[in-house]
Design a protein around this nucleic acid. Structure first.
Lengths: 108, 108
DNA sequence: TTCCATACCTAGCATAACTAGGTAATGACG
DNA sequence: CGTCATTACCTAGTTATGCTAGGTATGGAA
């Protein structure tokens, strides 16, 4: 359960460069050390939503001797949205930390 | 927008002792420095949900010369649930931090 | 007496994320 | 060759969450 922060995560995954859906899922899984093993039914619709919102653009690619893939890239609006989402996440997580008290003394 | 962490927040607000709905809203607002100014339509149903789940218990109280209030307390199961939710939040926020990269170097 | 703050409530909506299916192509394995 | 796992895409439908937008009622201040 990603509770509204999926968009930020997907946008962030594309910050390093274009990628296709399946790879995005793998990246998120790896970079979260398996915490977020997202079902395709979560990610694909999110990509469509973000594209419809103008935050991503996509193009079909067929690598030599491979299956076709839909490659997504961040648009300008997408980069801006990512910056906003990051700020929002900062405020949000800070507030939750404050409310949950003990949490997040952050030795690591 | 609380994205699934409302329960943890409400439970945490009751950790210090019993309180009624309206006061819980105020506490959350204050302790989050106004980040979470939750509408009643968010909190009351959540309290009912948590009580139905056995995590809270409630009793009507009428303070001398005051209006009746429904006081909520953490049950044993509620305390346990809170501990779980805290752990879940820790894992969750850590993972999001990792994915969003730059975020949360946390000097403050 | 009028208004604000306190204090409770709920029906109904929007949306997010997930479940659970489906389609194909590729390569490995026997 | 047939079968299976993996890659890679898709979507209809369910669920639950949190919110909007209303409503009731009391007490105190102006």
């Amino acid at each position: 359960m990603l509770k509204g922060h999926l968009d930020a995560i997907v946008l962030a995954a594309l910050e390093a460069g274009p990628a296709h859906g399946y790879a995005i899922i793998e990246t998120i899984k790896r970079n979260s050390t398996n915490t977020f093993d997202l079902p395709e039914g979560t990610v694909y619709p999110a990509l469509h939503r973000l594209e419809a919102a103008g935050l991503l653009s996509s193009a079909w690619m067929t690598p030599p001797g491979g299956r076709r893939r839909r490659m997504y890239s961040l648009t300008k609006a997408g980069s801006a949205a990512l910056a906003d989402r990051r700020k929002a996440w900062g405020r949000f997580s800070q507030a939750v930390d404050a409310l949950l008290g003990g949490g997040r003394a952050w030795p690591a």
